[in-house]
């Protein structure tokens, strides 16, 4: 039987978070003796399929009607592939792509799902999955009944899988266009271009809060410090609500969850909802003018002071 890892890609390459999901898939397969296959969906997938096949055998669902990741069509294909392969589990990295599509696929398969899994163990022949609840205040240990089990994992909690010695086989999945739903029409994606690393994949994340009142200010302080550290820039919900930063930069319970080596919180008080998105970072630095800010209580290093004064000093010190 098969453990299916669904890989998100950018049209050229598999997104690196998928390799953390592959690590989990391989590890589960090692215990159960199942096969691991990567599933990629899209249109014009030659390059993606070649990239993916370096890591595992690949099932390629390539069709013009799959050009955009609409949940209705992708969920249908994933469910069809899972049935054909008799999949015991379906695993993906926990991104908005997977959160949109996999629960729908689970419903089509009559399957249970656990999202945002950060760890697991096997007890009494059952897979025990660990996942955060209550904005990360609690960790739940759950089991899923029935098959397949649908699981999304937090990429930051697992290492990336390495390539195989020999590329895996590529299997073409025959997409029957007549069976694909036609529920939604993709219009477009609006994103703010950035040369910085992707938030969830960066070793260093620098985030800003309320002291930054315009996009220019945010760039001048948060952006420049992120660049000095070769890191990604993130922010609190308040900055996205105010239109200062785009939504894809939000860190927190409902934004992105990051766990970099270093997280620098600039002028972030530390609401529970924000902490849920970053508290598993290895080293946390808090810079805030309020010495009582809750962020200090979960920080490794704290510096009390005005971020506008301290950030330029930090950039100077980093240049020495």
């Amino acid at each position: 039987m098969t453990i299916l890892a669904v890989a998100e890609h950018d049209g050229t390459q598999v997104r690196s978070g998928a390799y953390s999901a592959l690590t989990v898939a391989r590890d589960l397969a090692k215990n159960s003796g199942d096969n691991v296959e990567l599933l990629v969906l899209g249109s014009g997938l030659d390059s993606v399929a070649a990239d993916a096949s370096r890591f595992a055998p690949v099932i390629v669902a390539d069709h013009p009607l799959l050009a955009n990741p609409t949940a209705d069509r992708y969920a249908r294909i994933i469910a069809n592939v899972a049935k054909a392969r008799d999949a015991v589990s379906i695993i993906a990295n926990s991104t908005t792509f997977a959160k949109d599509i996999l629960p729908r696929a689970a419903a089509l398969l009559n399957a249970a799902m656990a999202g945002d899994v950060t760890g697991y163990s096997v007890g009494n022949g059952e897979l025990l999955l660990r996942r955060p609840m209550y904005a990360g205040a609690a960790m739940a240990v759950v089991t899923l009944s029935g098959q397949p089990q649908v699981i999304t994992v937090r990429a930051s909690a697992f290492p990336s899988a390495g390539p195989l010695d020999q590329p895996g086989e590529r299997t073409v999945w025959n997409v029957d266009a007549s069976t694909l739903p036609n529920h939604s029409e993709y219009v477009g994606l609006e994103s703010r271009p950035t040369l910085r690393p992707e938030l969830t994949e960066a070793r260093v994340v620098v985030s800003g809060g309320r002291p930054f009142r315009t996009s220019e200010e945010f760039e001048n302080y948060v952006g420049r410090l992120a660049d000095a550290l070769n890191g990604a820039a993130g922010c609190t919900r308040a900055l996205v609500d105010a239109g200062i930063a785009p939504n894809e930069w939000q860190v927190g319970q409902t934004g992105k969850v990051v766990a970099p080596q270093l997280y620098v919180a600039l002028g972030i008080s530390g609401a529970v909802q924000h902490l849920a998105g970053m508290k598993n970072s290895r080293v946390v630095v808090a810079v805030n003018s309020d010495p009582e800010a809750p962020m200090f209580s979960i920080a490794t290093y704290g510096l009390v002071g005005d971020v506008r004064q301290i950030v330029p000093e930090l950039i100077r010190e980093l240049g020495k």
Partner: peptide
């Protein structure tokens, strides 16, 4: 279909070390 086996409280065991200025922070990092 999801069975809760148990819930655990999550605690963070970091103690914040206060630093005096940017130079000390960069040195520590």
């Amino acid at each position: 279909k999801v069975r809760l086996v148990r819930l655990e409280q999550v605690t963070i065991d970091r103690t914040c070390e206060r630093v005096a200025d940017a130079a000390e922070l960069v040195h520590k990092l």
